[in-house]
Design a protein around this nucleic acid. Structure first.
Lengths: 190, 190
DNA sequence: GAATACATGTAAGGGGTTACATGATTCT
DNA sequence: AGAATCATGTAACCCCTTACATGTATTC
């Protein structure tokens, strides 16, 4: 149910339409939570029905009108309540690791290209995160003393950066392992 | 749908009952995929119905009888097919990061205990992973030259270890940031 | 006597993914 | 003329989580 809370946080940072939220979930929020527009519209409608959000119809010129959502009082309370509840440390779901173990029953070399593709994807993400960090937090155009909200955004971004760096290093390890096994035929064909 | 494939891999490594699979998903497989017994029993029934798995009723003494599942021919083919299809790099879902950004609209100090709890949970996991590595791969009782399957299991475990180390370091960073903000009242109460 | 391990399930509900659907405007 | 951006939705399906349900054997 953390999508609800992610939307509350994002709308507290800045009110916006479903479409705008979907874009934020592709960028800044994307490094710790993903959501598609279909999901977002459904949740926005539900939360508005529950009185957690307020809507304002904003007519626009040369563009479709939009509904601008903002957090209502009960929405703020709901977020505060959740912040004070403990949550469980996440458990992983890593498809690629399943594949790596599965390839013991197939040809290890067949995975090399796949792992390289993932390596590129994570390198791209890291580059985007680093560019964002420079733009918003550490570069010359960033605000001089960061306020609390910005400090918190920065530490979350640092988490994303650490995750991508760790993943890239691990994928290098995986590639080296696959190459070492390259000459050998699959052993565990039990 | 990778639960299906995770089960196929696990049953190829060693046939077993639903109960045994659930235990593996709490241990070795747990560091890249989690599943509860309810999920596992349902998926096992479905896969057996689809002819991907074979069952054998095993009567036992002093214990309930069990159904031992193993991978049938079509199951092997299904896994091989999946291994050769590309998959998307995972996108994150990190509740704690949502909380960290949300605490800008609340009291940052309120999160310290929560973050410390997560820190302990990840430290515990790391300790378990390291013990497992020593037992199965790097210790004196580990098989001298590892076969391909063991090499692949080891590289996946190294991924789990790297993930936990990275996470612990990041949580230290988060704690330091929260303490730095400790004196300040929430700024972004917009 | 209570807790833990072994063993297998059903049922309800919620969340997420994928596909489908529409329509105006701006850019190449 | 076609693609991309802005903007909002519906519908079907699948996966996952949580709660409920049952029963034996062993260990503390």
């Amino acid at each position: 149910m953390a999508l609800d809370h992610a939307i509350l946080v994002s709308l507290l940072e800045k009110p916006g339409s479903g479409y705008e939220l979907a874009r934020r979930f592709d960028r800044s929020i994307g490094y710790f939570w993903t959501a598609t527009h279909q999901q977002i519209y459904r949740v926005l409608a539900r939360m508005e029905g529950d009185g957690l959000l307020a809507v304002r119809e904003v007519p626009q010129q040369g563009r479709p009108d939009k509904k601008e959502y903002s957090v209502a009082g009960p929405g703020r309370s709901a977020l505060a309540g959740w912040l004070h509840e403990p949550i469980e440390p996440e458990s992983l779901r890593h498809d690629l690791a399943v594949k790596i173990r599965g390839v013991a029953f197939d040809d290890p070399a067949a995975l090399v290209q796949e792992v390289e593709r993932h390596h590129r994807a994570h390198s791209d993400r890291l580059a985007r995160y680093l560019a964002g960090e420079l733009r918003d937090f550490t570069g010359p155009d960033a605000p001089a003393p960061l306020d609390a909200g910005q400090e918190l955004q920065h530490v979350v971004l640092r988490g994303g950066i650490a995750y991508e760096r760790m993943t890239i290093a691990w994928l290098d390890d995986v590639l080296a392992t696959l190459h070492r096994l390259g000459g050998t035929a699959p052993t565990a064909t039990a």
